[in-house]
Write a protein that binds this DNA or RNA. Structure first.
Lengths: 334, 334
DNA sequence: CTGAAAGCGCTTACAG
DNA sequence: CTGAAAGCGCTTACAG
């Protein structure tokens, strides 16, 4: 491997000039620049990143904790990681993956990675209600940005990017309404998580706005599973709610609803319109396909990187992005 | 941040001694070691990784190209990444994620990451038939290990770890046989990929061994989609093949088969036993669940890291691991 | 516009 | 067992 010194010798300039050619080319006279660049190319020179990082104390690496929740598979993680990676690379940075215990037990790992200068900062995701990581990192002065809000806190520590769940539900309700549905149920999650409340609120408000009934049409599932989605759908139908639309809080729940409809000889997208959330690979697995709310991954990733790497310190930044309804057969006009 | 120098001053030893306390503690006298360690703890010292890497020219980072194939979602990628990360961390290393164009167009990216010392080497996955990356990397002398074989080459460049697809199919056939099935079909893939041939071969051989028919029972799908799995299953049934078992090359294809069976009023796991490959999250999405062949992710990851970081140069290493059959309702005794 | 010098924080032979 | 010195490959003020 060629070094800066060798390039300098070859181009008959000082190392400083070569460094400038790379990092501040405008400082060089045109002919010098050209000569240096020729030498760089000829020697196939690539700056050693470790030397640079040591000097500048910036590693241009962003830490991301790869989640491991067997009970809640992150079905769009590959999409998210690809988008995050691509966004980081657009600024000359990369993503460093690591594992850590959940919650506060994982903080020493975050701290260590930062202290040993393996990363400049972190992107947090899989945010939980009362997530302790944000406050901890902020207190330590470790740079981070969160994908997802920490709910149930008056003011969230640090910057975040999230997708507007309420607007998503409203979009789904409006779409079902426009395809002729008038009794639209909502399938929610177990305990009152912030995310669930957000999406439920959007359903409720939009139904009210459209003059649709909501009483008895919102149900909570015990867990995010297909079986629960099916069970709850069965309960709604058995109770004689006469529903003709279902907005489910997740694709998994929505698929459960579809299964129950099929089992009863009802055609999803015909008698009952169904929508899910996140536009996971599951949405394309059923037939007809599941209408679902897509998270704008590229935009999310772009904002995360921009905030983490660009925002001047102390500027709390918050970005709420809009989901997009991907329409498939499960919500075809009835 | 405390530096080595400050720790040395605090412990009243030379920097060299502190370095030894960290990297070769056996060289220190017990009391010196203890004194140094106390100072390290007191000053909350963490060695700067960039300085270390600059000196040793090892970054302890392993590159992994995050795939982006919308048409072939990597359904177990999160499992793989978690296992890979954990295995790397057990050796003090981490995973660096990056994106690159597919095929030979991506090689400059690999080269650049290595030349600029962002990574020591690479883990390749999503290996394709005739994958050009292996030969290229080997030629450049860039360390790598492949998860998955490059088929159609007499001798594959570089070390690899893979899962025995033939053994997997054989396991599935034997299981279906043991639950009473005697006419077991195989759902394969479009063109003759090495992976597809491998798995098809296992089905064929095991059927022959058990004295089961194979003629007309092996079909190729045009793509890895649910619809194709369903279409091909319908064709088999319409042709009066009287099948009572289906070994599918992927979970997606298997799910298609299940859908078609359900559509015809047949109960999977009752009249027809069905198995898939990879034990993706999809396997748990259907009801009854899909029996599928699980790849031993932790073992795969462990071997990959061991080969990449431990093998002395020039030792070509090849590891073929065994999949495990995860039995669910789709293959319950008929 | 260009260059000589110092220094980022470590590790590695080499002496003692 | 411990220490003084050199050096990994860059960048950053600072002079000229």
């Amino acid at each position: 491997m060629a070094t800066l010194k060798q390039v300098a010798a070859h181009a008959e300039v000082s190392v400083q000039t070569v460094s400038n050619a790379l990092n501040a080319p405008h400082r060089l006279r045109a002919d010098t620049l050209e000569r240096v660049n020729k030498s760089i190319e000829l020697l196939n020179y690539r700056p050693n990143r470790n030397a640079r990082s040591l000097r500048t104390s910036a590693v241009e690496l962003i830490g991301y904790c790869v989640p491991n929740w067997p009970n809640q598979t992150h079905l769009v993680m590959d999409q998210f990681l690809h988008a995050l990676c691509a966004a980081a690379e657009r600024t000359g940075r990369h993503i460093l993956l690591f594992t850590a215990p959940p919650g506060v037990d994982g903080m020493p790992t975050y701290d260590d990675l930062h202290a040993r200068r393996l990363v400049d900062g972190f992107v947090l995701s899989q945010t939980e209600t009362h997530d302790p990581r944000h406050g901890w990192l902020k207190e330590q002065g470790i740079p981070f940005v969160s994908f997802g809000r920490v709910w149930k806190q008056t003011t969230q520590p640090g910057p975040w990017v999230d997708v507007d769940g309420a607007a998503g539900s409203a979009l789904a309700v409006r779409h079902l309404y426009e395809t002729g549905r008038r009794r639209i149920a909502f399938l929610g999650w177990p305990k009152a998580s912030g995310l669930a409340e957000d999406r439920a609120g959007g359903w409720r408000d939009e139904c009210k706005r459209l003059g649709l009934p909501i009483s008895g049409l919102s149900v909570r599932c015990r867990e995010d599973s297909l079986d629960e989605g099916a069970r709850v759908t069965a309960a709604l139908l058995d109770a004689g709610r006469e529903i003709d639309g279902i907005v489910a809080l997740s694709d998994v729940l929505a698929l459960g609803a579809l299964r129950e409809l099929t089992r009863r000889g009802l055609t999803a997208g015909h008698q009952v319109g169904v929508t899910g959330f996140d536009d996971s690979p599951l949405a394309d697995v059923v037939s007809p396909g599941l209408t679902s709310l897509r998270q704008p991954m590229d935009e999310i990733a772009g904002e995360l990187i921009k905030i983490l790497t660009g925002a001047p310190d102390g500027t709390p930044t918050e970005r709420l992005l809009q989901p997009e309804l991907v329409i498939r057969g499960s919500s075809a006009p009835g």
